[in-house]
Design a protein around this nucleic acid. Structure first.
Lengths: 294, 294
DNA sequence: TCCATTTATGCATTTTACGCAAAACATAAT
DNA sequence: ATTATGTTTTGCGTAAAATGCATAAATGGA
């Protein structure tokens, strides 16, 4: 019995399709079919009840899956453990991160790692949708904002400070608001995340919170695009420090209300490093986190 | 990576030799060598430091072994679990038992199982030396006497009663002893187990214990041979009930001191069923135990 | 009834595994 | 030192198995 056969079995269980698994594993569907069939004859039981349109795990298949899947996890862990004993990270590291953040801060880390460790391959999965770390076999993930699920090991890197900002050209044209309530009279670039974010919260040094209703005709669910709009003088925007720091330094954006703490949500926002909780954290993951934190 | 490769690795770790493993697995030593080599390249580390005369596990090899060996156990367990879900026992059952006991009581069980379950193979390992259940992958073992090690699941079947016995011809010729001390004047057939057994202990109905020094010029470490000697009228023998029951019924042997409890050791002796302690006891093992207990 | 989709199978090709023989090699004995 | 011995490794030819493609079969929905 081959371990790759067992991995295929687990994948088919997860994806509920031979062809899908075959596609992502770059093999012929017939190979998957044959692999499962061989496993079935070896075990002496049918693992899936399958027709051309449906693929349904057998009772026995489910039980086998529940026992085998964690064993495969541990097996790869054990393999990585001994592989790491040579001292140099190797193999493939899968990193998940928000698109823009990854482009800005992870690309340098990746190239650095590539230079330093020639046996290491890095897969950078940049997308802003939720991804299941264990399901997608992610080693390290960067998350922004507040964490929802946390069956993972989470490490808070730092708090994100949000700035109200605009281009100097816009401020010269429309004037610079001096009080929080003054913002309400400005055109604002909004990130419509669900229910809230039609108001911004201003917390002054004394801790007093003031909520200001926001007006704006441009709502985009992509902070990079909002930044572009702000740069072109379309209005005020509330953007995270990491995104606009270069623009502030170059003077292309100007920040307002620096001595306030401004947020669109009432949660505090941070940069997080997530890792799937497992007994052994592979060297490649440790090295990546190290380099990311500088 | 093949699971059989991992099994080979574990076996080599246990046996500390490529050739020995190859021999018991009926394959060429070169195949073992290549299997280990492939595993090493896959992991990127050397697992054994080997010369032509020595085979020494690497630090990494030892760590890998410690993690992988139990995983393989669990993997086979999982396989058996689903295989058992079809209801009929199948595969190979490995049973260990003392030689004579096995010949007398296990052969019928085996043939019964063979008839009832055509997909079941039984390996009956009859030897009187100590065997390591997990190392030898034994499913069920029958042990007689007192248990020493017990990291296993032990089940006491029944107490063994020992009888002083002799052939009628011998008793007619030499006379029948009527008191325990009378035994001392007889020629006795002895089983020299280590230090003790040069005296027999008589416990009467009231619980009083009397120790009698035994004299005998025939010492054999095989109870079946002692039985043969007793049958041929060479003297008194202390033998377990299960061994001489047919002889008693047929009248070829006659028992003495039936209302005493006679032993050669001060421990009480019993028939035990042992099973390696594991999360899942395979159906074939359960069925064997059932049939053995009638 | 037909269509779209998915699994299974036949077949040809490539790849891999296997065992034998011989070599390489380290240790023990002479 | 030299030989002897048992063990791992390698070369090589054969055998077996895996793979992909093309195609068939089957099924549920339009």
């Amino acid at each position: 019995m081959d371990i790759s056969t067992l991995r295929l079995f687990v994948e088919v269980m997860r994806r509920q399709s031979f062809t899908k698994v075959a596609k992502t594993d770059r093999m012929a569907p017939s190979s998957v079919s044959r692999a499962i069939a061989s496993l079935e004859t070896e075990l002496g039981t049918r693992l899936f009840q399958r027709s051309t349109r449906k693929l349904e795990p057998t009772e026995a298949g489910l039980r086998y899956f529940e026992r085998v899947a964690p064993l495969l996890e541990e097996l790869t862990e054990a393999g990585m453990m001994v592989a790491d004993s040579v001292g140099r990270p190797k193999g493939t590291l899968r990193v998940s991160a928000p698109t823009v953040f990854g482009q800005m801060f992870l690309m340098p880390v990746v190239s650095e790692l590539h230079q330093k460790y020639p046996d290491l391959t890095v897969e950078l999965l940049l997308n802003d949708a939720y991804v299941d770390l264990v399901g997608e076999r992610i080693d390290v993930a960067i998350r922004l904002g507040t964490l929802s699920d946390s069956s993972y090991i989470a490490r808070r890197v730092r708090t994100i400070k949000y700035y109200i900002c605009a281009s100097p050209e816009y401020l010269k044209r429309q004037g610079t608001p001096t009080t929080p309530q003054g913002v309400a009279r400005h055109e604002c670039l909004l990130f419509p995340r669900g229910e809230y974010s039609l108001s911004w919260l201003f917390r002054d040094a004394a801790g007093n919170v003031e909520e200001v209703q926001i007006r704006g005709r441009c709502l985009i669910t992509n902070s990079e695009s909002i930044r572009q709009c702000a740069l072109s003088g379309m209005g005020l925007a509330l953007l995270p420090d990491w995104l606009i720091e270069p623009d502030i330094e170059s003077g292309k954006l100007q920040t307002l209300f620096d001595d306030y703490e401004v947020t669109a949500t009432d949660y505090d926002s941070a940069i997080w490093i997530l890792q799937p909780s497992r007994a052994y954290v592979p060297l490649k993951a440790r090295v990546f986190v190290e380099h990311f934190l500088d």
